[in-house]
Nucleic acid binder design. Structure first.
Lengths: 180, 180
DNA sequence: TATTGTTATACTCTATAACTATA
DNA sequence: TATAGTTATAGAGTATAACAATA
């Protein structure tokens, strides 16, 4: 395996970071990756993957929720969401009930256990986030989240405004259409 | 397919963004994904994928470079890097020469064509980045990049400081070790 | 013995197509 | 006809293990 000494690697990381200090893609990709790694690791004791954790959060925000809507909120296909919900249901965190008004769709909701696990996960997340943000002052964090929020709001809405129907697509779906 | 109307989706996006306005993971993941999508699309005319583009940039920063080092800089395994470099070499953008001092390893460098394509790609990137950053003032962007740079520098170095040897690992490798 | 690049293979995550049941 | 959820399958992206050449 490609073993590189500590010192060599640290100084190289530093050089890399300086060379990419103005590259938005590098900055967002690396920081996001590093935080997701930390968070995913911190959630291991709860047995929650990031998609599972995200699903619990989304369901708690808007109960009841159908599986398809949950998938599109999280950004994965409804066929992929099946296994995620299967898993959460088997472990007693999510309840599937058939909707009375439309018996094809589920009303997903959190069980007592699901709420408990989620609240633990939220505490862990808060903790990880605080640890991660140590290098920033509170006013810097305020600016950071405001800026990122505005970037997301701006660029998330754009596609729907210019495309026609069938406009709720995941990144992959858009990519495939382009290639087709 | 899960089709959701424009209006419903836009207001739901707004609600989602507000609910996750303090969630670092959400903010970094979404903003990063949106920018990567834009950039990847803008680079299609040059026939460059993001890993190919990143490899060209890394090689240009530090010529000559071995394949293994290139992989660890970009964050993918050297076995995965083989195909990326194969592709760039076949298209005449990257040159592979055996190192005189260590004939196992390659000295990777950009060809004239590689430099030309990279300079076009850099111009495209600058343009995409400017478009993406329109919602921010220039002082906000200055703060944003400073903050993200410090977060990366802080959390990228930490693992090497506490782990022993074999410390240059990708996220996946660290994850697998944890699970083992 | 260890390392660079390579190949064959397998794993993870995700989507597409075809299905069932409902609408 | 169309949609919600399901299943089977395929694809993209990635890694691990074993190899040859070289150190």
């Amino acid at each position: 395996m490609g073993k590189i000494s500590n010192m060599e690697n640290q100084s190289d990381d530093g050089k890399l970071n300086r060379a990419f200090a103005d590259s938005l893609g590098y900055l967002l990709t690396q920081s996001g990756r590093l935080f997701r790694e930390n968070l995913a690791e911190a959630l291991v004791p709860l047995g929650l993957s990031l998609p599972e954790y995200g699903s619990l959060r989304l369901i708690s925000l808007n109960t009841p929720m159908s599986q398809g809507v949950l998938g599109s909120r999280y950004g994965i296909d409804r066929t992929t969401m099946v296994a995620v919900v299967d898993n959460l249901e088997e472990r007693g965190m999510v309840r599937r009930e058939r909707s009375a008004s439309d018996r094809r769709s589920y009303r997903l909701s959190l069980t007592a256990k699901g709420k408990k696990v989620l609240s633990r996960a939220l505490r862990i997340t808060t903790n990880e986030q605080q640890k991660f943000l140590v290098p920033l002052s509170s006013s810097e964090w305020a600016i950071l989240k405001d800026c990122l929020g505005r970037l997301i709001e701006t660029h998330m809405k754009a596609p729907e405004l210019i495309e026609g129907k069938d406009n709720v697509k995941t990144a992959r779906q858009r990519k495939r259409n382009k290639n087709a």
